[in-house]
């Protein structure tokens, strides 16, 4: 190897190291933040799952009884699979409902309309989620606005509250605007020339959507779905206030576990299972989002 080449490679390495240090310095706040507010609490959560509760006080120790108790309860697994199912359904419904809206905003409307639409999609976040959920009760209850309107045309009353439909309405309230925005950002960045090329090559409109636009906007669509899954999987408000806690989800089980007997260690077991589930789903989805086409 020539001496000049050698010198160059050493310089490259130094430069790379400098860049790494520079990058590290800038990324330090997020690392510190994640350590303090995610990693350390997670470790603590794991540790307390082995503690015991005596006279309403947590006593440090190492006992697997909480894990054994929770995993041996049929209602824990029933609740787990139900919560997974609820979040899955909410993810699919939200993504399907959001896509036409995001598509229209990305391709069919003027930039001015798009800006206004974005504004109106963000506005709901100005108010508390809990307040929005409570206000849905006025619409959905037996004597509520929807059933009153149905009655005018001789229909109903329909049970819209205290069931999965009510919970789903709550989930959509939480996630739909966010997913539309995420999908919109992705769709707006799709290269228009590729769409034109598809049309020039005789590709029909629907086929272009499914074979050109959706694959190109895959990252935003999957991220939107992941966010929906994460938010709904851990949501307490909608299943409690619109679903009537009937049947309960894992977040309600955590509340129940802590409310009676102050069983925080057992609640920690439920929380860890939830976190592990979400991490698995998230890594799988992100891998799918960024996977190159073969």
């Amino acid at each position: 190897m020539a001496p000049t080449e050698n010198t160059h490679s050493v310089q490259d390495m130094r430069q790379r190291r400098q860049v790494t240090l520079y990058g590290l310095t800038w990324s330090m706040p997020i690392v510190v933040w994640q350590l303090i507010f995610f990693v350390f609490p997670l470790i603590f959560l794991f540790v307390i799952s082995f503690w015991l509760v005596k006279n309403y006080r947590m006593v440090p120790g190492f006992d697997t009884i909480n894990w054994i108790k929770m995993f041996s309860k049929g209602y824990f697994w029933d609740t787990y699979w139900r919560t997974l199912g609820y979040a899955g359904v909410a993810t699919i419904v939200t993504s399907i409902l959001a896509f036409p809206c995001a598509f229209a905003l990305a391709f069919k409307v003027s930039p001015k309309v798009r800006r206004w639409a974005l504004f109106f999609l963000i506005v709901p976040f100005f108010t508390s989620y809990l307040v929005r959920i409570y206000s849905w009760q006025i619409f959905l209850n037996d004597n509520g606005i929807f059933n009153t309107l149905f009655a005018l045309v001789g229909l109903g009353p329909f049970q819209l509250l205290n069931n999965f439909f009510g919970t789903l309405v709550g989930y959509l309230t939480l996630c739909l605007p966010l997913v539309v925005v995420l999908q919109l950002i992705s769709l707006a960045n799709v290269d228009r020339t590729l769409i034109e090329a598809a049309h020039n090559l005789g590709c029909g409109r629907l086929r272009t959507v499914f074979q050109v636009i959706i694959p190109l906007a895959k990252i935003g669509i999957i991220l939107g779905a992941v966010f929906t899954f994460i938010l709904t999987f851990g949501d307490f408000v909608s299943p409690y206030y619109l679903g009537g806690s009937k049947p309960p989800t894992l977040s309600i089980l955590i509340i129940d576990t802590t409310k009676s007997g102050q069983q925080w260690p057992r609640a920690a077991v439920v929380a860890i299972v939830m976190i592990l589930t979400l991490l698995t789903i998230m890594f799988a989805s992100v891998a799918a989002a960024y996977r190159k086409r073969t």
Partner: peptide
Amino acid sequence: SLEDWNDFWSEYKNA
């Protein structure tokens, strides 16, 4: 025990 009653209540909610 209080735990027995609480466990049953969770079971009932899930039934």
